[in-house]
Design a protein around this nucleic acid. Structure first.
Length: 142
DNA sequence: GCCAACGTTGGC
DNA sequence: GCCAACGTTGGC
């Protein structure tokens, strides 16, 4: 059974470990190190090549969405631990400015986003197309 | 299978 | 650096 509609995601990375700038330089990377079953299942069962991704800097000052990526491979074993899996994520663009967590929280249009919920640690989250588009729009406006 | 202890995430 | 929230581990 195949899904045909495009999916949208938010994927967290700690900029001290792997930032949007590194992704821009490398153009594509295996999204390794995911050690949470729910996040793994999203990669394994729901992601499709071409899905659009908000790249989010966690453990940053401030935290927020810094740019865009896209899913660039089918799932395959995590090279750092073959019990887990990765997908490749390709660089798409770096935003002219960060859309901070604070700003997303304040925006009524984004009140359903998972990332703004207290205690939400999930490192890969589905977002709606509307949320995705709205975050992109915020990034392109002041 | 329960659940207390422990480890991790990640905002603040 | 603190600690709330959550996920995992392991004894029973």
């Amino acid at each position: 059974m195949h899904k045909s509609s495009m999916n949208f995601w938010l994927m967290k990375t700690e900029p001290d470990v792997y930032s949007i700038d590194t992704l821009q330089k490398e153009k594509k990377t295996p999204w390794d190190g995911v050690r949470n079953y729910q996040a793994r299942n999203f990669m394994r069962d729901s992601m499709e090549i071409g899905d659009k991704v908000l790249i989010y800097h966690s453990n940053a000052k401030p935290p927020g969405v810094v740019g865009l990526g896209k899913v660039a491979s089918a799932p395959y074993p995590d090279p750092t631990d073959e019990k887990w899996i990765v997908v490749d994520i390709a660089f798409v663009k770096k935003f002219p400015r960060m859309v901070s967590l604070y700003e997303m929280r304040e925006d009524p249009a984004l009140k359903t986003m998972l990332v703004i919920k207290k205690g939400m640690r999930l490192s890969i989250q589905p977002v709606t197309e509307k949320e995705y588009t709205h975050v992109c729009h915020l990034a392109e406006t002041t």
